[in-house]
Simulated scan of single mutants.
Amino acid sequence: MTPLLVPTGYGEIAVHLSGRAPREAPGLLLLHANPGDHRDYDAIVPALAADWAIAAADWPGYGASTVSDPELITVDALAEVAVRVAKALARNGFGALTVLGNSAGGYAAVRLAQAEPDLVHGLVLVQSAGFAPRNLATRAYFRFVASALVARRYVVPNARMYLGPLDRGELRAIFERTGAVPGDPVRLAVYRSLWRSFDSPRFDLTADGQLVPGLPVQVVWGRNDPTNPWFANRAAVARALPQATVTVLPTRHEPFAEAPGLFLDSVREFLGACAGMRP
């Protein structure tokens, strides 16, 4: 199916639609990590398509989306893109959305809910960025990874580490797509720019105090993720999202791809409640 193309100041964003007609079913927006694209969610989309109108976006420079200037792509640029996408979906028949965001996509999902509360009635945050401690060590790490000398060599081994064994679920396909990033100057530049932006004070979601009060939220974390471990995030998540249901799974950074059945079992009740809130 031809994706819905959403013009933004950062590029033309491809939003891949599947599942039911949006005027007849609740809407689910999927936001992926850095790097990656909408196909990261391929393992769970077929199971959700019977009940949901699904919109899976590609961030600027990734997947089928274009990018006007890779240097402009920050985590807050992703948040702005998410707002533009949500508004475009509303114009195309979608009601208020449940938003599922992974890693940097989780950060963007929170900012979308803050900016446009009427467009969002539930969040599923999977290994979300923005909750880990911001200190001299983490800031230095972000700048180190974003450097030209390091980034090209870091993309693939880092993905190998946070994905884990590639014989599980759809992880091998994700890893193979990640392997193409170092050879693509545009996508590598986007990757580096996003890592640089992690050093911004804005990246710290906990600085806002309690986030999205009253909004239903489920936090899903893979306890075996070595890159964004649960122990470094759980206190901040509890403070910022006291209303959240928290589920910790025996997986790594992308549980929906590593163990799709287990992931769906863990979010089914929450998604069902969100679906029932469709205006």
Rank of each mutant, 00 (worst) to 15 (best):
N34Q: 03
N34F: 00
P35G: 06
P35N: 10
H38E: 11
R39I: 00
D40K: 06
Y41R: 04
D42Q: 04
A43Y: 10
I44N: 09
I44T: 14
V45Q: 12
V45M: 10
P46V: 03
P46I: 05
A47D: 14
A47L: 05
W52G: 05
W52M: 06
A53F: 01
I54W: 00
I54Q: 00
I54S: 00
A55F: 01
A55R: 02
A56H: 07
D58I: 10
G61T: 10
G61A: 12
T66A: 10
V67C: 04
S68D: 14
T74Q: 02
D76Q: 06
E80P: 11
E80S: 07
E80I: 12
A82Y: 15
V83W: 06
R84D: 12
V85T: 02
V85C: 01
L89C: 07
A90Y: 05
N92L: 15
N92T: 12
G95C: 09
A96N: 15
T98C: 04
T98A: 05
V99Q: 13
N102W: 01
G105E: 03
G105N: 02
G106Y: 02
A109T: 06
R111N: 11
L112Q: 04
Q114F: 10
Q114L: 14
A115F: 10
D118N: 08
D118A: 08
L119G: 00
H121Y: 01
G122Y: 13
G122N: 08
L123D: 02
V124A: 07
L125Q: 00
V126D: 10
Q127S: 15
Q127W: 13
G130E: 15
F131N: 13
A132V: 08
N135M: 07
L136M: 05
T138Y: 08
R139W: 05
A140W: 13
A140R: 15
Y141A: 11
Y141M: 11
Y141C: 03
R143L: 13
R143N: 08
R143S: 13
R143H: 05
A148D: 12
L149D: 14
V150Q: 00
A151L: 01
R153H: 02
Y154W: 06
A159Q: 08
A159K: 14
R160T: 02
M161G: 07
M161D: 13
G164L: 05
G164E: 07
P165I: 03
R168A: 03
R168P: 02
R168E: 12
G169A: 04
L171N: 03
R172M: 10
A173Q: 15
I174D: 15
I174S: 14
F175Y: 15
